[in-house]
Amino acid sequence: MVPLSWYLVVAALLFGIGVYGVLARRNAVAILIGLELMFNAVLINVVAFWRYLHPAQVPGLVFAVVIFAVAAAEVAVGLALFIAVYRRFGSSDVDDINLLKW
């Protein structure tokens, strides 16, 4: 069987790519995609830990289900707000969305 650490490394790389996407991309939709990658990395972590540590117990699976349900809700609200922003600002570039600043 593949050792647990391989899964953790893949998850860490995926998480890193997601964070990079959120911080470096200027397009709001690309940022939302980066967020999805972060949540997916967490899912790999949780399911791998569950499979290797306590495959007979259910909390790990519940954790995973809760995470992807919440991630879907988060992105649904994100896209709705993005549409509202796009209508007001006529742009999907986050650098243009900058009325509020100190």
Partner: peptide
């Protein structure tokens, strides 16, 4: 803008925390 900013920062924070 406030709503969208709150969502982006909030989702990033919860993603990081979840990790």
């Amino acid at each position: 803008e406030a709503g969208f900013k709150y969502l982006l920062f909030g989702a990033l924070a919860s993603g990081v925390m979840l990790y």
